[in-house]
Amino acid sequence: MIRCLYKGVQVPAEPSGGRTPVLRASGIVKSFGHVEALREAAFEVYPGEITALIGDNGAGKSTLVKVLSGVMQPDGGTIEVDGSPVQFGSPQDAAGHGIGTVYQDLALAPDLSPAANFFIGRELLRPGLLGRLGWLDAGAMNRRTAEELQRLGVELKDLNAPVASLSGGQRQSVAICRAVAWAERVVFMDEPTAALGVVQTERVMRLITRVREQGVAVVLISHNMPQVIELADRVQVLRLGSRVATYERGQADEHLLVAAMTGAVNQEVR
């Protein structure tokens, strides 16, 4: 039996005024044929914050995430990392700037161990000639994986068991820890608790706050309003391809968020 242990975490309230966003997008345009998925969308992520990105289905959330994580290239607009303009040609480019993604399908190889999954495409080789022959340094990979999991308070009993033998929450945790291990700036999380039960959801939410504690900004895409209100330091609402509202922690209740998503409230009238 393998299980995860989480520690309770106090969430410090932090002001954001006057700081440079770790990731800033402005005027992002993306069309598919004659459908405008993003219309000059703006988005900011501040260091050490959990930023929720919400919006109704079709509002452009996933397109925006794909643009910001390098999966898709925008038709127009600018992206800045720590104030410098950048261009992402691929997810690897984004990763190079410290930006990672936890995909909704987790993108784990179910037959492989957590350690093997942590290092897909980044396998560590033994030093010297053996390494040049492609000999994996399994010990080093296991150690680093164990360290990363421990850093975020995730405990797995057997690092060699296949990921498929873990519970849904544990799998989610492995995917999150993997992303955080390779992304020092921002991690996008697409519906991280959508497939989980109540207890496991609670655990993953604690893990998310713990990621923020480690100094990595989190972008949370979620339909779960209570969860957004509980976790997010900042909520940005997308509607019809543009941002329509931004709220800091405590400024919005569920009612207001829904109003913004449906168009009843618009802060950013142009």
């Binding site: 993108a107 093997a116 980044r122």
Partner: peptide, 16 residues
């Protein structure tokens, strides 16, 4: 080899 067989999409997204 095993990663691709287990989930080729995961391998692709990780730059394999």
């Amino acid at each position: 080899t095993l990663t691709i067989g287990s989930n080729h999409e995961a391998a692709r997204r990780s730059g394999v």
